[in-house]
Design a protein around this nucleic acid. Structure first.
Lengths: 302, 302
DNA sequence: GCGCTTTACGCTGCGCGTAAGTATC
DNA sequence: GATACTTACGCGCAGCGTAAAGCGC
């Protein structure tokens, strides 16, 4: 035999009749006319090659083979219901999991409020957040540890053939220095003005540093420190050790009485934030929903 | 939603496409035209309320939701196949179980050859044999420990409303005595002739005894022993302690040099063997097959 | 332009409901 | 004769195949 066909309707009809032991009532349960229901049972019996019910006009009951089949039928129906239900839960966002990789600045700055909103809207969906530098974000995306990533163009990955990035927003750089620093009150700020001052750099693999290097090249800064974290930058600046230049999205680190932040309106001195995903393979419903929410909340209309 | 429909065809189409990742090939696998196959997948996706495949013209692959559904679909198909296969095995007698309750005389005498034949023909079917007196046979039948029973009419159960018995064969009684006993050579045998001699009785609850009592009533025998087993009767008779009268089917106990067995052509002195089953509920395929074989091998055309 | 999926469309037949038939109590 | 399953029958629509049309490379 090539392949026995079996449908959930037949299974439901079978269990209904096994319970009711009466064609007329079981037919009503299945919303069928009694003859149609009868035919359904007959077809099932023919398909399975076994008589499942003994029916003399007065009584209907399972044959030994029918009794054998009954638990299987019920389990099949339950499993079907389970599989369908589970899928529906995911499709309707009652269940799910999203994993986002994001730059530390976004992960600490603007993402939390968005994630909170998302989690409140879809409480059944588990959200995972990986805060990592751009390269690590992209790596996690490639290795399927993240569904999508919020990273800077510096990674150079947006153009890679296996990934697909869309611009989320630009992120202009600001000078940060102490309130008592001469640049805090300077009339106009230019790149040349910054160069002499002791400068706190970020590590070379940070997108902040990469954007900065690219924009200021070939200008050389007077780097006195090279650190990993923006919080450290803040501490060093606050201590009067130097100045720094950081993107707008990181300014929350520097909102202090003792410090001043000033936009640097230099052409090209902008970091671009990308929303990156794998080119092959769509996002899960849950991931797509968070993706769209982030796009809506962070996306620049430009 | 009232009840999501799902058929094995849809599940097979789904797994085929998940494997092949190509509509055209998957359609061939399912013996469908490609557009028909396409529609089948679309219907499935609509039924489940979730997109299962990403298809741009160049490539087809599972969505995250599709990947979620895939193991469920495979398991459902396997379970279906298993349930159908198991049922078919029973219907085609590759598997099964029959339980027969039979009188000791039949269980030891004529049944074994029939059971051997049955077991050889259907090696996958397990046979259970309960040798018990008529009453116990009927009790096992009622309690579903036996599928059917070979018992004597003496149980009075053949007429019971919950049982259905059909006559299998009559079983005429024979005198058994030592070769040197006067009756061994008597010209004609009558009931009265037997009465004086020391007589070995079977227990009152045996069908042999019940048939005998009923046929000879009101004649009183000279009972000297009342034992449970025919083998004991044989021993006692062989020892010269007495004579006895037993049904033909038990004569294999008495086929000995020292003994003589003689038909007793007395009217009414016949035990009837019935093939009894429950009135409600049919026999399993396996049980019906053995039932029919027994009927064929033991049944009297009369 | 080629390969693959989707849409269009006519057709067959499965499966439905209504109504008549049959068997059992 | 009442009840409940089966058979008969006409009909609509789901689902098929063929053919034509998008759509990415």
């Amino acid at each position: 035999m090539p392949a026995p066909e079996l449908s959930s309707r037949q299974l439901r009809a079978f269990t209904a009749l096994a319970e009711q032991r009466n064609f007329t009532r079981a037919a009503q349960t299945c919303h069928l006319s009694q003859p149609a229901f009868s035919a359904l049972i007959r077809t099932l019996e023919e398909t399975l090659g076994a008589r499942l019910f003994d029916r003399d006009t007065r009584s209907v009951q399972l044959t030994p083979e029918g009794r054998l089949f009954e638990p299987s039928a019920r389990r099949l129906l339950d499993d079907m219901q389970g599989a369908i239900g589970d899928l529906a839960d995911h499709a309707q966002r009652r269940k799910g999991r999203v994993s986002v990789a994001a730059l530390p600045s976004l992960a600490a700055g603007r993402l939390p409020a968005i994630l909170a909103e998302f989690m409140q809207a879809w409480p059944g969906i588990t959200v995972e957040l990986h805060d990592a530098l751009s390269d690590a974000c992209i790596a996690q995306l490639r290795s399927h540890q993240a569904d999508f990533a919020l990273a800077a163009t510096g990674a150079g990955a947006a153009a890679a053939s296996d990934l697909r990035g869309r611009k989320l927003c630009g992120d202009r750089f600001h000078l940060v220095c102490r309130k008592d620093h001469p640049l805090a009150g300077a009339a106009r700020l230019t790149a040349r003005q910054l160069a002499p001052w002791p400068f706190i750099q970020m590590a070379r693999n940070s997108s902040v540093r990469q954007s900065l290097d690219a924009a200021l090249h070939p200008l050389r800064l007077n780097a006195v420190f090279e650190v990993e974290h923006l919080a450290t930058v803040m501490g060093l600046v606050e201590a009067g050790i130097g100045i720094s230049v950081v993107p707008e999205l990181t300014l929350f680190h520097f909102q202090r009485e003792t410090l001043v932040t000033r936009p640097l309106p230099l052409p090209g001195l902008t970091r671009t934030i990308y929303l990156v995903q794998r080119r092959e393979g769509s996002l899960s419903v849950a991931a797509q929903t968070l993706h769209d929410l982030i796009l809506e909340r962070l996306g620049a209309p430009a």
